[in-house]
C-alpha cells in the first residue's frame, strides 16, 4: 500500500507538470511519464495485460503522435512566447492551489464509504473475458479503429477543386 500511495502521488504530480509546463514537447513527455506511472500502478494491482497495452499504446504510440504534431508546428518568436508565457502563468497559477484546496477538503470531510462489493467474478482470466464473453465489443472496437482511419484519410486528402 505504501508503494501504491507513492505511485499515486507521483501520478498526480507528473500529470500536473505535464499540464503546467510551458513547452509543448515537455507536456508530451510528461504525459508519456504519466502513462508509464499508470502502467506501474496497473501492474501493482495485478492487471498486467492492461498495463502492457497502456505502456505500448499510450506511452509509446500516442507520445509519437504528440511529438510528431509538435515537430510539424513551429515555435513562436521569443518576444511573443514570453508574452504568452506570462499570460499562461497567470491563468495556471490557480491550479496547484485548487488541487491543494480539493485535497484538504477531501481529507477533512472523509466520507464514510461503506462499500457493498458484489461477489467476485467467476471468470478471472482476462483472455476468456475479452475473446469469449465480450466478443461483440471487439467488433465495436474494430469499427472505432476503422472510423479513426477513415477520419484521418478524410482529413489529409488532397483538394481536388475549390468547391470541395
Amino acid at each position: 500500500m505504501m508503494l501504491l500511495s507513492v505511485l499515486l502521488i507521483l501520478l498526480v504530480l507528473i500529470s500536473l507538470w505535464a499540464v503546467m509546463t510551458p513547452l509543448l514537447l515537455r507536456a508530451a513527455i510528461g504525459l508519456a511519464a504519466t502513462s508509464a506511472l499508470l502502467t506501474m500502478i496497473m501492474y501493482q494491482l495485478g492487471a498486467p495485460l492492461a498495463a502492457v497495452f497502456e505502456l505500448s499504446v499510450c506511452a509509446g504510440l500516442i507520445s509519437v503522435v504528440f511529438v510528431s504534431v509538435v515537430s510539424l508546428t513551429h515555435r513562436l518568436p521569443l518576444k511573443e512566447f514570453m508574452k504568452r508565457r506570462q499570460s499562461r502563468i497567470k491563468r495556471f497559477i490557480f491550479l496547484p492551489l485548487l488541487l491543494v484546496a480539493a485535497l484538504a477538503i477531501m481529507l477533512t470531510i472523509k466520507l464514510p464509504f461503506q462499500l457493498q462489493l458484489p461477489a467476485a467474478d467467476k471468470i478471472s482470466d482476462v483472455r476468456v473475458m475479452l475473446w469469449n464473453i465480450r466478443r461483440i465489443d471487439l467488433f465495436g472496437q474494430i469499427m472505432a479503429l476503422l472510423a479513426g482511419v477513415y477520419g484521418v484519410l478524410i482529413l489529409f486528402r488532397g483538394r481536388k477543386t475549390d468547391g470541395d
Binding site: A47, V65, A120, A144
Partner: peptide, 30 residues
C-alpha cells in the same frame, strides 16, 4: 475492478478505453 474482484472485466474495459483513446487522439492530432 481490483476492489470488487472483477479485474478481468475491468482489464477488458480498459483495453476498449485505450483503443478509443488512440482513435480520438489520432483524429484530433489530424
Amino acid at each position: 475492478g481490483y476492489l470488487s474482484g472483477h479485474l478481468a472485466l475491468a482489464q477488458s474495459i480498459v483495453i476498449t478505453i485505450i483503443v478509443i483513446e488512440v482513435v480520438v487522439v489520432v483524429v484530433a492530432a489530424g
